[in-house]
Design a protein around this nucleic acid. Structure first.
Length: 279
DNA sequence: AGTGTATCCTGCAGGC
DNA sequence: TGCCTGCAGGATACAC
């Protein structure tokens, strides 16, 4: 689940706690989270110091003293929990990896569905991997012009285009749908059908939605938690995502759900019409 | 270059 | 209460 805003919230929450902290040991409880295998993963991390924690797209990026990085993709239900994270009721019953830190503390990766992955990469491997991801939507490199030229070459439905991490890094299903609503663009419209004004609008909406979501510490639909166990509150600002049958906040029409590439999309049938708007 | 389908896995809500 | 189905923030591989 976690998209850019959730990954950003987690990275910001972890960084002040983990800067300069040495990974004393790595306990692997679920090795299927480690594509490279437990042995190499452990040997590249044990005894290494964390320099800082950041984010690239939806991934957490731990910069290490070794020059390498610990790359964490949270999948749908991944969490990075600091010691003392509040967990009530269902709690965190799915710890897959435990990083032992000094003074008996530990950082736990918890993931009930185990769609997430953790990888210990060399600097070179990380450069290669990062180059496969598209621009950061909140970065200075992501201009209207960059978006325009990307869209112009693709017949893909705009919702699917936005989810492709090679095109833009970090946008997931929630924020793609929300940005399209704000821009009054139907999710099934082909990318190259967007007019210049629509592209400009979409660029603005994407950045605005993502910044707001970060401010609200992400969206907790069910599983997402920050490193302290807290929830994100962007859910109450959602305009379309998960609101099938409810009224559009703009025009009162009933929000509809559709499916593209096997994934739901949500839209207002009155504000977001499926045909290109002539300009 | 696209789409649909399936896969990985668990958990929850809704219908009956 | 219980069983069954569908659905879920992601990513990838496959055939077409």
């Amino acid at each position: 689940m976690p998209e850019l805003a959730e990954a950003e919230t987690i990275a910001r929450g972890l960084d002040p706690h983990l800067r300069g902290v040495r990974i004393e040991g790595v306990e692997v409880l679920r090795s299927d989270l480690l594509p490279q295998g437990a042995e190499q993963f452990r040997s590249r991390l044990e005894g290494v110091t964390i320099h800082r924690v950041g984010r690239r797209g939806k991934n957490l990026v731990f910069r290490l003293g070794s020059g390498g990085v610990l790359l964490v993709n949270l999948g749908m239900t991944g969490r990075m929990l600091l010691p003392g994270a509040r967990t009530w009721g269902e709690g965190s019953g799915h710890v897959g990896i435990r990083f032992r830190l000094p003074d008996g503390a530990s950082l736990e990766y918890d993931d009930s569905r185990r769609f997430g992955t953790l990888e210990a990469l060399t600097a070179r491997e990380w450069r290669f991997r990062s180059a496969r991801l598209g621009p950061e939507p909140l970065g200075s490199g992501f201009t209207t012009e960059v978006l325009r030229s990307g869209l112009a070459r693709s017949r893909s439905p705009i919702r699917s285009w936005l989810l492709d991490q090679r095109r833009i890094a970090g946008v997931g299903n929630i924020y793609a749908n929300e940005a399209l609503w704000w821009s009054r663009i139907h999710p099934a419209r082909s990318a190259l059908s967007l007019g210049a004004g629509e592209v400009e609008d979409l660029h603005r909406s994407l950045r605005r939605v993502l910044r707001r979501a970060i401010r609200m510490r992400g969206t907790t639909l069910r599983d997402y938690r920050d490193p302290e166990g807290g929830e994100g509150s962007f859910g109450r600002l959602l305009r379309v995502y998960g609101r099938e049958g409810e009224r559009c906040r703009r025009c009162r029409a009933a929000i509809e759900r559709g499916v593209l590439s096997n994934r739901s999309f949500f839209f207002c049938p009155s504000c977001q019409i499926p045909e290109p708007v002539p300009e």
